[in-house]
Design a protein around this nucleic acid. Structure first.
Length: 413
RNA sequence: CGGGGCGUAGUAUACCGGUAGUACGUCUGCUUUGGGAGCAGAUAGACCGAGUUCGAUUCUCGGCGCCCCGACCA
């Protein structure tokens, strides 16, 4: 894409009233637009990043048998009354609205009720199970206080997968698969080395749930981490019994702050019983379906990546989620730059081409802020040397490469 | 939801009971061109409403909005 066509611009100044690093950088770089507190629009570059994150998640969900669906944001009151989650005293972050005729509706903050209800039309026999279904959809939560930029908003994207099993064994097996899929997601998003499976409150059907906590000073959670064992315990549940369960001692635990980037949860029959989602076993006897839920927020993940890798000059995207792989910068050598751009496009290399008539300094500064992994400069200097200058954003390494070396590098050969 | 702070241009700010000034930014033109360059010109602002007043951006009240701490976060 030619940058002269891109409607967003980079800014030197931070917006006022924006403290979190992720929002400040994403707004300055033109990835997002803040509509109001806790509500952000994604602009072209931001949407490219968000899509890449969602696609990584999709691939991992599909790989463990997930089937993608898309449920509605509008939710019917009566369904939520069945599970006793309609009343504001039970769930305080509802956004509620009304039909013209006065009927109350809610804007979904999660979808256990909705999907359980859908499944009553599709599950009758043990032969129908298991089913694993997920969606990537907008959630609405009436947070008392929005904060942390795009990481804790009132409207945000969420991938939620729900598992439906006939037996506890199947749930347990799938749960472990989902856990591994989440590990893969964080690995692929570049956060693998700093994201830890964390034991958290399990609710009424299992002792623990598992959170995926990404270490960050911007985090709202406090966890106790054993780096050696690679696991952590959320502060909320830390006690002697838990330590004994997990064979951990206080001495080996380090208190760190972290961002909750994912959460997987065994639901048991918490929703299937009140909504009457049952299957018949071999003998024709009915049983409630055993469920699990598995959530991860693409927007929060994006914010976490920014928080994790940015430096004083701007964002640093891991290649897997970067809006473009290459930022091609023309310094008064339009003809040669155009040619290189055409070649990259032909080879399918994702490239943002800064073809604008700006000063070199502005282009470099903007490029650092955008955080695209490889910056390729074409200038009089590079043309006379017969080489291209490639700067690696994450470590500042500068390489002088011939054209064939350049393409070999960018195509990962 | 409890507590605190704050609303003057995109940003940072100044003055003032007599209708707003500066800097940076932005835009246009020219000159520049390897780290946000120079010159010239231009653009753009009192959150909203009510009250007090001859007159309110300024004082009072109400609303709306934003930020921070805490609580909350199946």
């Amino acid at each position: 894409m030619k940058q002269s066509q891109l409607f967003t611009k980079t800014r030197k100044e931070a917006p006022k009233d924006e403290v979190s690093k992720n929002a400040e950088l994403l707004i300055r770089a033109g990835y997002v637009h803040k509509e109001m507190a806790g509500v952000y629009s994604y602009l072209p570059l931001g949407l490219r990043v968000l899509r890449k994150i969602k696609n990584i998640i999709r691939e991992e969900m599909d790989a463990i048998g997930g089937q993608e669906i898309e449920m509605t944001a509008l939710q019917e009151k009566s369904l939520w009354e069945k599970t006793d989650r309609w009343d504001d005293s039970k769930v305080d972050n509802w956004f509620k609205t009304k039909l013209k005729n006065g009927s109350e509706l809610g804007l979904g903050f999660t979808h256990e009720e909705a999907i359980t209800n859908i499944m009553t039309n599709h599950i009758s026999s043990y032969k129908d199970l298991p089913i694993y279904a997920y969606q990537i959809q907008t959630k609405f939560r009436n947070e008392a206080r929005a904060k942390s930029g795009i990481m804790r908003g009132r409207e945000f994207s969420m991938k939620d997968l729900y598992s439906f099993s006939a037996t506890q064994e199947d749930l347990d097996i799938f749960y472990e698969k989902a856990k591994q899929a989440y590990v893969n997601i964080f690995e692929r998003a570049g956060l693998g080395d700093r994201t830890f499976i964390t034991f958290a409150s399990g609710g009424s059907f299992s002792k623990y749930s598992h959170e995926f906590q990404t270490l960050s000073i911007a985090g709202e959670d406090t966890i106790y981490l054993s780096r050696k064992k690679g696991i952590a315990v959320n502060k909320e549940v830390l006690n002697d019994e838990v330590l004994k369960d997990l064979d951990l001692s206080r001495e080996e635990l380090e208190e760190v702050s972290s961002i909750e980037t994912g959460n997987i949860f065994k639901l048991g029959t918490r929703f299937s019983e009140p909504i009457n989602l049952t299957y018949k076993d071999e003998k024709g006897q009915p049983h409630p379906v055993i469920m699990g839920s598995y959530g991860i927020g693409p927007g929060r993940l994006m914010g976490t990546i920014v928080e994790s890798f940015a430096d004083e000059k701007g964002i640093i995207w891991p290649e897997s989620v970067a809006p473009f792989k290459v930022h091609l910068i023309d310094i008064r050598s339009k003809e040669a730059s155009d040619k290189l751009y055409e070649k990259m496009c032909k080879l399918g290399i994702e490239v943002l081409y800064d073809d604008r008539d700006q000063s070199a300094g502005e282009k470099f500064g903007g490029s650092d802020l955008l955080g695209i992994p490889y910056r390729v400069v074409v200038s009089g200097k590079t043309i006379s040397s017969g080489q291209y200058e490639v700067k690696v954003r994450k470590n500042g390494e500068v390489l002088m490469l011939t054209e064939s070396e350049l393409f070999a590098k960018l195509q990962g050969k």
